[in-house]
């Protein structure tokens, strides 16, 4: 409703990780090109609810505001996405903001996604180099392969794929699409491939690739359009071969 003069926000809040959640509603003057972030900034400047109650400003996480850092991920009108690209004019009102539900809550809309970074450690998501000293050029890589890798390396660890995954939950240890896709990325690189077996072993266990239930919501909600299900299938193939190798060739 572009003629509307106000924005109506409904925000799920919680003061402590073990506290109780509650809802607060805010009404803000509509500004051109407003997004959810600018609304939250407005609340910081005027932290007063619709009912006129003075409250603490809403706490959330953000940084780049250009959809490349992944920080401002939250559940907006029921779907997980980045708040910076959530344009108010494109959203039905009231705009409902909730924290991601699959990660431990810190406060209000701010959650702790450390689990994703821990998973990157488990799968050795890096290229093990000899050292930083100048030993000349890197490996020659065909542009086509590079372009494929680039798609995967745009993953900003935002957690959308995990929030929307029916298999991923707070009380299990499923690693999820983003991690599997990173395994594929590093296994694709000529130097990274040298640690392929260690990476595959790390995801051939509890919470690993076999737990994927193929609901394919990950690929639908990925803001970077990363071919996550392709990665899952590719890793499925690599782990299958690894299993056969482990069973019959060792």
């Amino acid at each position: 409703m572009p003629d509307d003069k106000t924005i109506h926000l409904k925000i799920k809040r919680q003061d402590q990780p073990d506290g109780k959640s509650y809802w607060e509603e805010f009404e803000l003057p509509r500004k051109p090109r407003a997004n959810v972030i600018s609304c939250l900034m407005d609340i910081q400047m005027h932290p007063i609810t619709r009912e006129g109650k003075e409250v603490t400003p809403v706490v959330w996480e953000c940084n780049c505001l250009e959809e490349v850092c992944g920080a401002c991920t939250m559940v907006i009108n029921g779907k997980v996405r980045q708040a910076c690209t959530a344009l108010v004019d494109a959203l039905p009102q009231p705009i409902v903001l909730e924290p991601m539900s699959k990660f431990p809550l810190v406060r209000d809309l701010h959650v702790d996604r450390s689990r994703m970074f821990e998973n990157l450690k488990k799968v050795k998501a890096w290229i093990h180099i000899d050292g930083t000293y100048d030993i000349g050029e890197g490996p020659v890589i065909p542009e086509k392969q590079r372009a494929k890798a680039y798609l995967l390396s745009e993953c900003m660890t935002c957690g959308c794929c995990l929030e929307a995954c029916p298999q991923f939950a707070k009380d299990n240890d499923f690693m999820g699409a983003s991690t599997f896709s990173q395994v594929r990325l590093f296994n694709m690189h000529p130097t990274g491939a040298m640690e392929q077996e260690e990476r595959l072993d790390a995801i051939m266990g509890e919470g690993g690739i076999a737990d994927c239930g193929n609901a394919q919501v990950c690929v639908e909600v990925c803001p970077k359009k990363i071919p996550l299900t392709e990665s899952i299938a590719e890793i499925g193939r690599e782990t299958t071969l690894q299993l056969l190798k482990n069973l019959f060739l060792k």
Partner: peptide, 10 residues
């Protein structure tokens, strides 16, 4: 914040 979210990404 997690270092992976630093401003250099921009």
């Amino acid at each position: 914040q997690p270092v992976k979210r630093s401003h250099s990404v921009c």
